[in-house]
Write a protein that binds this DNA or RNA. Structure first.
Lengths: 134, 134
DNA sequence: TTCCATGCAAAGCGTTTGCACACAC
DNA sequence: GTGTGTGCAAACGCTTTGCATGGAA
C-alpha cells in the first residue's frame, strides 16, 4: 500500500541500480542473475516483490512484449519499443511530438478524451541482425 | 507444420465459429466455456491446440494486452485496440491510413525499412464506463 | 521494540504436452 | 489401415504468497 511506510533495503537499492544500468529491457530472471553477482543470497521472490513495488510507484516501467515473461525498464519517460523478430531484443523508439499528438487526437475521438496512454510495440529486424544477414 | 495434411475436425470448426461470432476479444477460458455449450465433452487442451494452430495459420490473431492471459481475435485485418482501465474490455480502434503511413515512416528510419507490423494498445476509459460514472 | 523486508519453499495459474483412444481419409 | 485429432491428466514455467527470521527506525 502507498500509505505504509517503506523502509530502506539494500536489496531494493541494488535491484534498482542494476536495472538503471541495463539498457536491454531485461526480464526478471536476467535481473535476478545480475543482482545475485552483487548479493549472492538474494532470492527470486525478493526480486519480484521489489520490481513490482518499484513499478507500482512508477519508479520503473513494466513491459509486456508478448513473449510470456515480464520485462522491466528504468526509463519511465513515455517512449516506444521495437522488438527484433530475429534475436528478440528490445530497442527504444523515439516518435516525434507532432506525430504523437496526432495519434492521441485520433484515439481521443473514440473515447471522449479519456485516453491515459499508449503502449506501442513494433516488430521488425534490428540493425544487428540485418548486418549479420548481409 | 504447414506441410502436414490437416484433417477436418468438428472441434476446430466450432472453435473458429465461436470466435468469429465473439467481438469481445475473448481469452481462452471464455472461448472454452462457449464451445463447451455446443460440444460439452471438449477439453481445454483441444481449445488451446486449435487456437494456436489457427493463429499459426494466420486465420485468427493472437492478442497480448498485458493482463497475463492470451486473447484471440477472428478479425485478422490490421487494426488496433483500446483497453478500458475500468472494466478491462477491449475495443477495436481504426486509425486512418495517412496517419498510419506517417507512423510507419517514422519507425522505418530506425530500422532500415524492415518493419513488419505494429501492435498498438491504448489505455483509457471506454464509453460504457464513462456513462456509468456520470 | 515495532513491524516492514527477506529467504525459502510451496502454491497458484495459465499453458503445454505425453499418451492411449477416436476418427478422418 | 494409416496417421492426425482428441480427452485427460500430469507437467511446465513464470509469478505470487505464507511463514519464520532478519533488520531498519
Amino acid at each position: 500500500m502507498s500509505n505504509t511506510k517503506m523502509r530502506y533495503s539494500k536489496q531494493r537499492e541494488i535491484i534498482y541500480e542494476v536495472l538503471k544500468n541495463d539498457m536491454t529491457h531485461p526480464n526478471v530472471d536476467t535481473i535476478y542473475m545480475q543482482v545475485k553477482k552483487i548479493l549472492p543470497d538474494i532470492s527470486l521472490g525478493t526480486v519480484y516483490r521489489n520490481l513490482n513495488l518499484l513499478a507500482d510507484q512508477d519508479k520503473i516501467r513494466r513491459l509486456d512484449i508478448g513473449d510470456g515473461v515480464v520485462h522491466f525498464d528504468a526509463k519511465i519517460e513515455p517512449h516506444y519499443h521495437l522488438i527484433c523478430d530475429d534475436c528478440g531484443c528490445i530497442k527504444d523508439l523515439i516518435l516525434d511530438e507532432s506525430h504523437l499528438a496526432f495519434l492521441i487526437e485520433q484515439v481521443q475521438k473514440e473515447c471522449d478524451d479519456q485516453i491515459m496512454g499508449a503502449d506501442i510495440v513494433f516488430h521488425g529486424i534490428c540493425p544487428n541482425c540485418l548486418k549479420k544477414k548481409s
